[in-house]
Write a protein that binds this DNA or RNA. Structure first.
Lengths: 160, 160
DNA sequence: TATTGTTATACTCTATAACTATA
DNA sequence: TATAGTTATAGAGTATAACAATA
């Protein structure tokens, strides 16, 4: 149970005034991310030794079997060399596999191994549970609204 | 003008299915941050040579004159050594100053110089304008709602 | 004993350049 | 020429440990 209510225009963190920062979306996103990052680090990174990039990669492949490295890099806003390195690490760990592309001999499809699929499913369950716990103060309707608004922001990303 | 409407359950980035990831707040925050980070890099980092940490530090000091390094580190979820390094860099650049604390001789108040104040005000104006441009597809009401929901998420951060 | 600020240092992550194979 | 994937490498950013000064 919370003890004191913070002043109206204060950062949740240090009870500081935000001023113009209140309207800066990038700042509010960063502050909110502190919470989700902590949840991730405790429930996934710490438990399953999975970085955020790695988890997201596995989750995207799970839903889009056969993605290429270029597609993943684009989706995650990562550079190609970094994406390759992360993929390589997960291949060596036995979580994903590279398979030849049907029509383009340069490209490689990436698929989950059984171990990878099991891991990503466990991680997703852990995250959803932990986020729900951490955000118990928000109603399901508020969380849904937040998700849709965030998707609207993300949708304005310039294609590359 | 948008050409095609993306499929219902697709990432804005690569037109990929999200699946369970749709409900993972950390993922949606990261995707939305791609947009605001790009805005920041182009309009602030690139123009005024200011990192996100630096800008936020200046903006918080502007509204909370005399903050200490410990308070800033807490507000930004930074470690003390890193906060000290960022502060040091901005002091050397003439954007902020350290002043002795009235009652605690260990601590130091941090204040903006005139140059720092001018810079942070210009940066804030640039960000607000650029974010508004980038998010032209969202109504003011939607943006306000988003801000409040994000603050609600951030408010659930565990105190430290 | 705990806290503030700092230095030193190692590690993680990211970006750039350059290369190959293929389109 | 452009693209997919990769290697090599440098730089940015972050964390940990340890310290002096003060509370």
């Amino acid at each position: 149970m919370s003890t004191r209510k913070p002043p109206p225009d204060a950062t949740p963190a240090g009870r500081l005034r935000e001023g113009a920062l209140h309207a800066v979306l990038g700042y509010q996103l960063a502050q909110a991310s502190v919470v989700t990052n902590a949840v991730f680090d405790e429930q996934v990174a710490g438990v399953h030794d999975l970085r955020k990039v790695e988890y997201t990669t596995l989750a995207l492949i799970e839903q889009n079997e056969g993605l290429t490295a270029a597609q993943l890099a684009s989706a995650l806003a990562f550079t190609a060399p970094n994406m390759a390195a992360w993929i390589d690490r997960m291949v060596k760990r036995g979580l994903i596999e590279r398979e030849p592309h049907a029509r383009d001999r340069r490209a490689l499809h990436i698929r989950l191994t059984d171990a990878g699929r099991t891991l990503v499913q466990r991680a997703t369950a852990a995250i959803c549970q932990a986020e729900a716990d951490a955000l118990a103060g928000m109603s399901p309707a508020e969380r849904m609204m937040l998700t849709e608004l965030l998707r609207k922001v993300a949708a304005s990303r310039r294609a590359r």
